[in-house]
């Protein structure tokens, strides 16, 4: 009981560290859930939890803008896209019939991951960082905005071009519609015969069938 009281007093004086550990103990098992859960749609939703706890970590690090961007882009946007892709690629929500990795394979991957972690840890562990004890600027969003529009305006513009290219490219890739052959005006029957009928092909066919 004494130790519990000591722990409580310590937690009350070090709120930041306590919050960090709470968020870290949330993030690590959830990350394991993402990569190990049998039902892949559930791991898609667990991903929201990981991104949410990382958003909390950003708030602890006083990066308010990035915390909200994390919430909007990752926890909502990317997870939504991933879940939609899961629904499209696994329509009956069955347990995945995929071949599992062999135990030797898993052991090798585990060794590589632990080795990578130890390398990173041993290289960040020596305390010769040039740390700055200054507090972060209270309105660092303003600093960010100024930097983005002055010093970093060229990368900013390139980022917008990249996003446009990615948008067009992913639409073109995901659409996958066969162009109608020249001379063949009966467009509604130009469906690929073998392989699964794509969604938009099915949509194209239905109104044509009702017309006749």
């Amino acid at each position: 009981m004494d130790q519990f009281e000591m722990l409580k007093a310590w937690a009350e004086t070090n709120v930041e560290t306590t919050m960090f550990y709470i968020l870290a103990t949330l993030a690590i098992p959830l990350a394991y859930g993402v990569i190990l859960d049998k039902t892949i749609i559930r791991s898609g939703f667990i991903l929201i939890g990981v991104f949410g706890s990382i958003c909390g970590l950003f708030l602890l690090l006083q990066a308010q803008f990035l915390a909200l961007a994390q919430l909007m882009i990752y926890a909502v946007g990317i997870t939504l896209v991933i879940v939609i892709a899961l629904m499209l690629t696994n329509p009956r929500m069955e347990k995945s019939q995929l071949s599992n990795a062999t135990p030797a394979n898993q052991l090798g991957a585990f060794m590589v991951a632990v080795g990578l972690f130890m390398t990173i840890y041993l290289s960040v562990r020596p305390e010769n960082w040039t740390l700055s004890s200054e507090p972060l600027d209270v309105n660092n969003v303003e600093v960010l905005g100024r930097a983005l529009t002055t010093d970093y305006s060229l990368p900013f513009e390139f980022a917008s071009v990249l996003l446009l290219a990615a948008l067009i490219g992913s639409i073109m890739l995901a659409k996958a519609e066969k162009p109608p052959k020249p001379g063949e005006d009966d467009y509604e029957y130009s469906v690929v015969e073998d392989g699964p009928i794509s969604d938009d092909a099915r949509h194209d066919r239905e109104p044509a069938a009702s017309k006749r």
Binding site: S96, L98, N100
Partner: peptide
């Protein structure tokens, strides 16, 4: 923070190598 990031990075690496589903 750097250690937490290293842990998450290693978990991601392990999952990338082990999982057989492309979306995962």
């Amino acid at each position: 923070y750097l250690t937490l990031a290293a842990v998450l990075f290693s978990i991601g690496l392990y999952g990338m190598v082990v999982s057989r589903n492309a979306v995962r």
